[in-house]
Every structure is written in structure tokens, then in C-alpha cells.
Design a binder for these strands. Structure first.
Lengths: 229, 229
DNA sequence: CACGCACTTACACTACGTGCATGTTTGCAC
DNA sequence: GTGCAAACATGCACGTAGTGTAAGTGCGTG
């Protein structure tokens, strides 16, 4: 599509995030982004399930066949947003010191998500997902994928740690619970604040994430109802 | 729930599971079962994704169109197995006394699942799901559906309880965690015992379910190494 | 018996996802 | 620069999914 008539792009690659700024990969990333953007735009304008792959291809200026070279379905294209969001959390998790309790690492990683840049796409996705089982399922897949990643990260951490072996049940149950609590916090936040991204709203999200990890760490002790934040 | 005071329902219903034994609904249930069976059979013989709706229809002795009158996709047909399994758990959960701690109710309900009749289809599904992302996603949906059900059940219970309002975060985080832990226990069990349904294997499953609830109740206290019994 | 309703079936149609053959761009060596 | 090879985009064709519609068939009711 673009980049056909550029007279002279300087040969040495400027220091970008990509370690291989070759023209091909750059172009490919651009196309991928264009598809993702067009998909999201159609999602906004027409609503979920109300547009076809051909519509996306046309909006992105590519052929239908090319779309499938990048994503295996519209769901996949949409899920890339969620994956990006959760990968951010994963990244944060991996940065935590290995001797820190997993719950604390998770808490720290999740709190990092309460950031306009990160949550903005997710909040929008949430609002669109509400009335669409089609989207809900790809969301589920994304969360599950993240769970697996956390298990892998935690297992790797355990291997480096002196205390060594964590058993499989502990690992999977904890990872799954952490994700469930993070998800619960997101859901409650969205039901209260919608797509509001103001500092106040984000503070609420942050607190919800902290609270959910607190519940998990205390074994969901007392529902009671008196403590209000 | 309790309509147990009538000793003899005289004219219409013979004491079967179906309250309406009319020929039509009976026939319909049979067809539904035939489809489900044929689907599972093809799943076994040909493997996931290796057969079409037409194959199922032919095996069940119906037309392709009729299949879609019962299930909206092959996934749905397969998921009916998982739904049946999880609905059993739900049913058990609802039977627990309202003043019992939720975690204890969940533990009791889950332990009821460690029963040959209940787990047999699930174990088979698990073995087929392993190498098939197609099945994995419908599994995820089923678990999620169950989570929503638990939330609903717990909320309803809270409404009847004197201690009244449980906040949304607590509810969702707990329900999600319970399901995640139950799922983790199932996964670990399957990875250890495969489709073995012997009493010894089921005892392991039962213990895993209890342990996972224990972890949840103790806030995932000490990973350490394993406390062995 | 005849009518009405639930259900099944056949047909047609849109859209998805993939294999394949072909044209175009990019990277690399000469 | 020129030529080559690999990567990528595209068009075409095919099988399959899922849905609307109208006509046929079995079941319950008056």
C-alpha cells in the first residue's frame, strides 16, 4: 500500500523498539496495525457481528485473502487488543523479584494496568463485549492464555528460587485465582465507571485490584459488609 | 424446591425425570440425545475438527438443517456434555444451607463431582480437548457460564441471609476463584490419572478438590514444599 | 375425521477459512 | 544497477458453516 515512492530513506535504522527494523517487518507491522485499527473502527461504527471480513479488508485497503494472512478470524483480530493489555501485565509480573510472594507480585503487576494508556482499549472492548457473546468468548480465551503465561512465569521463578518445587495444584489454583480476581476487579470497575478514564476512576480501579488481591490473600475471610473503601 | 409432601401424583406424571412425557417432547429429547451421541462418537473415531455437521446429521439419521434446530454449532453440541457436568455441581451448591460459608458449600459441591457417573464424560472430553484449541474454547465458555451461575446463586443466598449485602467485588472474585481452583484440580487430576476412573483415581480427584479449596481458604499461605499426608 | 401445531426437510444464499497459482515487492549478492 | 530468490499480496476456486424460507410429515386436540 504506502511507501511506494519514497525517494531516499536513510539506510541505517533509527533506534526503534524493534530489533530488526528491516523494511519488510516494518511494513508488515504497519499492515497488521491497519487491520487492527480498521476492525476496531468497524466494531465501533457497526457493532459486533454486523460487518464482514471483506468490510475490514476494504477499510484497511487490502484484499480479503491478505486479512487471513494476518489473522485467522475477526475474533483473533479483536483479541489482539486484549492480548496486548494482558501482555503488559505479564511483563510487569516478570520484572518482580523472584523471592517476592507471588500474590504481591501479582498485585504490583495488576496495579500497573490502572493506567490510561493500558486500560483505554480494554475499557472500550468491555463496553462492546457487554452485548455480544461473540466477543465474550475471545475475551475468555485471552484471560485463559494469560493464566497459562502466569503459570509458566511462576514455574520458572520457582525453578530459580532456592525453595524449589511448587506443586502443580498450588501453581494452577493460584494463577487461576489471581486472574479471576483481576478479571472481577475489571468487571466491577467497568460496571461502576463505564469507559470513564479520569484519574478518579482509575484510582477506583487501582483500589479494586488491590482489594481483590487482598481478598485472595486473606482467604476471603469475612464478607460482613462493614468495611467500605 | 421441596414438593416432597405429595406421595402420589395421580394422573399425568409417572415419576420420571421429565415432567411432560408427551410423545413430542420425548421424541425431541431422543433426537437431541442422538445428535449428542453421534457427535461424541465421531469425536472419538475421527478426532476434533475432522468431521462435518453433515457427518453428524447422517450418523444421527437426520438432515443437516435439523441439526441446527438443536445446536447452533458442533461446539455447542459438544459443550452440552460439560454443561451437564457443571450443572450437577451447581445443583449441589444450591442445596447447601444458606448460612454455610460459601467456600465450604463450594467444597462440598465439588466433592460430589468425584463420582464415576459425573466425571466419566468430562474425563473423556479432557482427553480430547488436550490437542484441540477448538474444544478448549467451548470448555472455557462452560466454566465461565458456571461462574456466572455461582455468582447468581451466591447473591440469591445473600439476599435470604440476615447479613444481607455482599459487595460485588467479593462475590465475583470469590466465585471466579472457586471455579479456577476447581478447574485447576481437574486439570492436575487429569494430567496425573488420565481417564482412569478407578476408586483410587477418584479419591485423588476428591483430595485435589479439597486441597484446592483449602488453598483458597488459607489465602495460598505457604508454598514451601508440600505437606504430605 | 379433520384441523392445527410442532417438527423435519430440501433448497438457496451469504460468509468464513484455506489451498493454489500468479503477480509484486523486498533483500541480497554480484 | 542487474539479477535472483525469498517473502508477501492478490485473485480464484472450493468446501463448509449457519440462516431464511417454504413445503412436507407426524402428533395432539376438538
Amino acid at each position: 500500500m504506502s511507501t511506494s515512492t519514497s525517494p531516499s530513506p536513510p539506510p541505517p535504522p533509527p533506534p526503534e523498539t524493534a530489533p530488526s527494523p528491516t523494511r519488510r517487518e516494518l511494513n508488515k507491522a504497519a499492515t497488521r496495525q491497519a487491520i487492527s485499527d480498521s476492525t476496531l473502527e468497524l466494531l465501533r461504527s457497526k457493532g459486533p457481528g454486523k460487518f464482514t471480513v471483506e468490510d475490514i479488508a476494504e477499510a484497511a485497503g487490502i484484499s480479503r485473502r491478505t486479512f487471513f494472512n494476518y489473522f485467522s478470524s475477526t475474533e483473533t483480530a479483536i483479541a489482539s487488543v486484549t492480548h496486548g493489555f494482558l501482555d503488559t501485565a505479564l511483563q510487569q509480573f516478570r520484572l518482580r523479584p523472584a523471592d517476592e510472594p507471588i500474590l504481591e507480585s501479582a498485585r504490583a503487576a495488576l496495579v500497573e494496568l490502572a493506567d490510561p494508556m493500558s486500560v483505554a482499549p480494554m475499557a472500550e472492548l468491555f463496553s462492546l463485549t457487554q452485548a455480544s457473546p461473540l466477543l465474550a468468548r475471545s475475551e475468555l480465551e485471552a484471560w485463559d492464555h494469560c493464566t497459562e503465561q502466569i503459570i509458566a512465569a511462576a514455574r520458572e521463578r520457582a525453578a530459580h528460587s532456592p525453595a524449589g518445587d511448587m506443586d502443580e495444584l498450588y501453581l494452577r489454583a493460584l494463577a487461576g485465582s489471581v486472574i479471576s480476581c483481576g478479571k472481577a476487579a475489571m468487571e466491577v470497575w467497568f460496571s461502576r465507571c463505564g469507559t470513564d478514564l479520569s484519574p478518579k476512576s482509575l484510582a477506583i480501579l487501582r483500589q479494586l485490584l488491590i482489594d481483590s488481591m487482598g481478598l485472595l490473600g486473606s482467604g476471603f475471610a469475612a464478607p460482613h459488609s462493614s468495611e467500605r473503601s
